[in-house]
């Protein structure tokens, strides 16, 4: 065990998987000599050389398109898109190509690869270094969408993603890249299973679903709610697609109340899907309407991002809403 940050956890996962499998290659902008703008690929080039840790031209479509071609040929590419806000030139390669390759070829050609990209606000990044694009990807069959919420999961889920047979979009919440630290196993074989949510706090009165940096906000809100005698349960989704519906239904069945939490914009957000699933499959257990706490339906702001970002008090208000309905 070592106490490490999420950045270090990502770096360790890459290093261990590259040691274990010569076919794993990393490519992207500034990932080589510079080790990535967030340092997630730091020093990998020293150990694995520039044929496996590749500084590419500034071309997102080229990076992902190249990785698709590499994956088809048998490599395990782990391309990095420097900020998820810049992933759109590659959206065609991701949704039209990478996601559909297995299906359209009848399973003859597959794209096992992991697109790593930092996402989310709270670092004073303005419109284009802060967004949360997960819903664009969860709307595409064939993709696996994974979001860790702490260093332990970041390492274990990334290792699992690299070993996964399907293409993975791996969204890293950059607000919590460098803090907090956490004990993480050094063991090569440790992975966190994709497709399974985790209950981060057990409770009996209400459920909060969250992922990424919002898990900590959910936990803080539960602390505040406890002062009023309300017992909250936090379900960290971890994999958004395919979703662990059972974990959500199970928790809501126990608590009877649901608050969904995300920092992405609200309309057609991922939480709306959770709300719909609960409405379809468990509406009879609900004692109050579902409340969604999210970012606002505006472009991500610069100066006022602290107002935009969901915080514990805003979540607490939603909790009050479902508890006093």
């Amino acid at each position: 065990m070592s106490s490490i940050t999420m950045v270090q956890a990502v770096n360790d996962a890459l290093r261990e998987e590259m040691r274990g499998d010569d076919d794993v290659v990393v490519l992207g902008e500034d990932v080589g000599i510079n080790g990535g703008v967030f340092r997630c690929t730091a020093d990998l080039i020293d150990e694995f050389g520039e044929e496996r840790v590749i500084d590419t031209p500034l071309s997102e479509s080229g990076i992902i398109g190249a990785a698709v071609g590499m994956a088809l040929y048998g490599l395990k590419p782990v391309p990095e898109i420097q900020f998820s806000d810049f992933i759109w030139p590659a959206f065609d390669q991701i949704t039209s190509e990478m996601a559909k390759m297995r299906y359209r070829s009848g399973g003859q050609f597959t794209c096992p690869m992991v697109v790593r990209t930092p996402y989310g606000g709270g670092i004073r990044g303005g419109h284009y270094h802060s967004q949360s694009p997960e819903a664009y990807f969860t709307h595409t069959p064939g993709l696996v969408v994974v979001i860790p919420s702490d260093p332990y999961d970041a390492k274990g889920l990334l290792k699992a993603a690299i070993r996964c047979e399907d293409p993975v979009i791996f969204l890293e919440p950059k607000r919590i890249y460098r803090a907090p630290k956490m004990d993480v196993p050094d063991d090569d074989d440790y992975v966190v299973e994709i497709g399974k949510a985790a209950v981060r706090r057990e409770g009996t009165d209400f459920t909060i679903t969250a992922y990424g940096a919002m898990v900590a906000v959910a936990l803080e809100a539960c602390e505040k709610a406890a002062e009023q005698g309300w017992s909250g349960e936090v379900v960290d989704l971890r994999t958004l697609l395919p979703l662990d519906e059972d974990a959500i239904i199970q928790s809501v069945t126990k608590t009877g109340r649901l608050v969904t939490l995300q920092e992405a914009t609200k309309f057609c957000g991922f939480s709306s899907e959770i709300s719909a699933i609960v409405a379809e499959k468990a509406i009879d257990v609900l004692e109050a309407p579902v409340k969604r706490v999210s970012g606002f339906d505006v472009p991500f702001p610069y100066t006022l991002e602290h107002v935009y970002m969901p915080h514990a008090d805003r979540v607490l208000k939603a909790i009050e809403g479902v508890m006093t309905y």
Partner: peptide, 16 residues
């Protein structure tokens, strides 16, 4: 889209 993928497959051939 296939032009980029062809480039990637060729690149993989070189790496391997």
């Amino acid at each position: 889209t296939q032009i980029n993928q062809a480039m990637g497959t060729a690149w993989a051939m070189k790496i391997k």
